[in-house]
């Protein structure tokens, strides 16, 4: 419950904050120029920077923003986490944001093709799937083949979102035709269902399994080592705070990002 509720609260908070960001921009054409705001000083990025990021990046990016606050005290980072495909759709529809980080290149390519990205996306991390079961594995799941069992409650991501696309490739590679009971719009939802014990098994990223802590156990899936998602990040063409965007993107691709992401279980790019 706490995770789901927290996620909802976050989404609501973002929904409230996003329009505010838009208003600030209008009064602030030279964001980050240094002289127009009380907090601006020299090259230090300031103001608000909005980052749209894949749901699987939730814990890592919040941790990163927390650590970044020491370096850039005047920079406020606002996150909107969700399914990569949905985030790309939001950007194309004109959502006010500065940075986009997706969970696979396919979704980022859509943003690039729609011309909403500034420059080349940079891959900053990689992630692999795992077979997650509730603590104690009450249904006695032994491997991927069990996902075909109609009697098991199985959660898998929508095929259009990166974790679902990866799950499809993994199941193909293993020759398993899964019988999912629900298709979640992002990986966090699938992870929550396992943590709550409502799903017997789910294919989620290793990092999400780690983030759920003791509520989730993972089973070794040899085929999963071969199915790895690249995570690209890009500055957005319509960024209202390009300096802030460069600062946060630099932190994501830089040493700080590497260490935080590695801590969460992401693989090096």
């Amino acid at each position: 419950m706490s995770r789901g509720a927290r996620y909802t609260v976050l989404a609501v908070a973002v929904a409230i904050v996003l329009p505010t960001v838009g208003c600030d921009d209008d009064e602030d054409p030279q964001v980050g120029a240094g002289s127009d705001t009380a907090s601006g000083q020299g090259d230090t990025p300031s103001g608000t920077v909005t980052v749209l990021a894949a749901a699987s990046l939730t814990e890592s990016f919040e941790e990163l923003a927390g650590q970044l606050a020491r370096e850039y005290p005047d920079l406020e980072v606002v996150f909107s986490f969700g399914p990569s495909s949905g985030l790309v759709e939001q950007v194309i529809s004109g959502a006010p944001a500065d940075v986009l980080a997706t969970a696979d290149p396919t979704t980022m390519d859509e943003a690039v093709a729609a011309d909403v990205v500034d420059g080349e996306p940079v891959v900053f991390a990689r992630n692999a799937l795992t077979l997650a079961v509730p603590a104690g594995n009450p249904a006695g799941v032994t491997g991927l083949a069990d996902l075909a069992d109609d009697d098991l409650r199985v959660a898998v991501c929508e095929p259009q979102v990166p974790c679902g696309a990866a799950a499809e490739r993994l199941l193909d590679a293993a020759g398993v035709t899964a019988a999912p009971d629900t298709l979640t719009t992002d990986v966090k939802e699938a992870a929550s269902l396992v943590a709550l014990g409502e799903a017997d098994a789910a294919l989620i990223y290793r990092t999400d399994a780690a983030a759920e802590g003791d509520d989730i156990e993972t089973l070794d899936v040899p085929e999963a080592d071969e199915i790895v998602n690249d995570y690209p990040v890009a500055l957005l063409a319509d960024a209202a705070n390009p300096d802030g965007a460069r600062a946060i993107a630099g932190a994501i691709t830089g040493e700080l990002g590497r260490s935080v992401l590695a801590e969460a279980g992401f693989l090096e790019p």
Partner: peptide, 10 residues
């Protein structure tokens, strides 16, 4: 409808 918009299928 929600899944479609989340999947970029507007």
């Amino acid at each position: 409808a929600y899944v479609a918009i989340g999947a970029g299928d507007s």
